[in-house]
């Protein structure tokens, strides 16, 4: 097994078993903010204990180890075919040792061959740059939260949402109310305003690569992000939809150009078990440092 495959197995292990520090801090704050003696507080206590236990045992935080999404920033000239082969070997091995559940099903036959490999699985997003660094980010996105993602086409008459930021706000908040309970809250939203249906969802997922405590460089989007989190936390949905003070841990919004006829708002919901990790690799494929 080559160094790159070994590094990627370690990336998968760490992503599956260890929640990033920024997310854990946000969960601790949520726990402090819930009323003592409520079922919301009990839920967050179990979540907190689960995070500790998964890390200590080096086992999946959540049994749904999700869609496996690789985001690779690489220098021009990196052999992407070779990289993807190494990543597939890593996924297969990580599944064998239980860092990943046997989680990939043939959509036509319903068969699960237990390898997590198949058409579209895992998914790769390569981005070239002019530097010499290779960074690999990995998101494991569970099905429960993926199922409550939503894409709105504006204008939306039912929600009285027009083609402006207020319209975006309305549909995003609607997505939060619809997702309650099902998406394992408190959640984190990745959102894209614009794009086509495919690029919009893709861009919304890339927003989930941002740090929870960063600030959007666009002041209008930064204000919308803050407003979404504040308003969502006033709705009383709470952890697991049990009622309570923390419904969202964060909202990250990006924008992509659209054609004049279309105006999509794509919302990707991430559960509290926010499994994202990343590392920089050296030329030999060894891990140099962690990104989160």
């Amino acid at each position: 097994m080559n160094a790159l495959t070994e590094s990627l197995i370690e990336l998968i292990r760490r992503t599956s078993a260890e929640i990033p520090d920024d997310v854990q801090r946000a969960i601790l704050t949520a726990l402090e903010n819930e009323k003592k003696g409520t079922i919301a507080e009990s839920a967050l206590k179990i979540i907190e204990r689960n995070i500790e236990l998964a890390k200590q045992k080096s086992q999946p935080i959540c049994q749904d180890t999700g869609s496996i999404l690789f985001y690779i920033d690489c220098p021009v000239g990196l052999d992407q075919i070779e990289f993807a082969d190494a990543a597939r070997a890593a996924v297969k091995q990580a599944t064998k040792v239980g860092y990943l559940r046997q989680n990939s099903v043939d959509s036509l036959t319903g068969k699960n061959d237990g390898t997590n490999l198949g058409p579209g699985a895992p998914a790769f997003h390569f981005h070239q740059h002019r530097g010499d660094k290779i960074s690999v980010r990995l998101v494991l996105k569970g099905g429960g939260c993926e199922n409550v993602g939503a894409q709105y086409s504006l204008p939306n008459t039912k929600l009285n949402a027009n083609r402006d930021l207020d319209g975006c706000r309305k549909v995003i908040l609607d997505a939060i109310v619809q997702a309650q309970g099902k998406g394992c809250g408190p959640g984190i939203l990745g959102i894209c305003i614009g794009g086509d249906r495919a690029t919009g969802y893709n861009h919304s997922k890339e927003q989930l690569l941002r740090m929870l405590d960063d600030t959007n460089p666009n002041p209008e989007l930064a204000a919308l992000e803050a407003d979404i989190v504040k308003t969502a936390n006033e709705l009383g949905i709470g952890p697991m939809g049990f009622g309570g003070n923390t419904t969202l841990l964060g909202a990250k919004i990006g924008a992509a150009n659209r054609v004049p006829a279309s105006y999509f708002v794509s919302v990707s919901y991430m559960c509290w078990a926010y499994r994202r990790q990343g590392c920089e690799l050296n030329q030999n494929g060894e891990i140099q440092n962690w990104l989160y």
Binding site: A43, C62, Q63, M240
Partner: peptide
């Protein structure tokens, strides 16, 4: 009976 979603380790124990 509502379990705590995502708490796979606590529940596996």
């Amino acid at each position: 009976l509502h379990g705590i979603g995502g708490a796979a380790q606590v529940l596996a124990e």
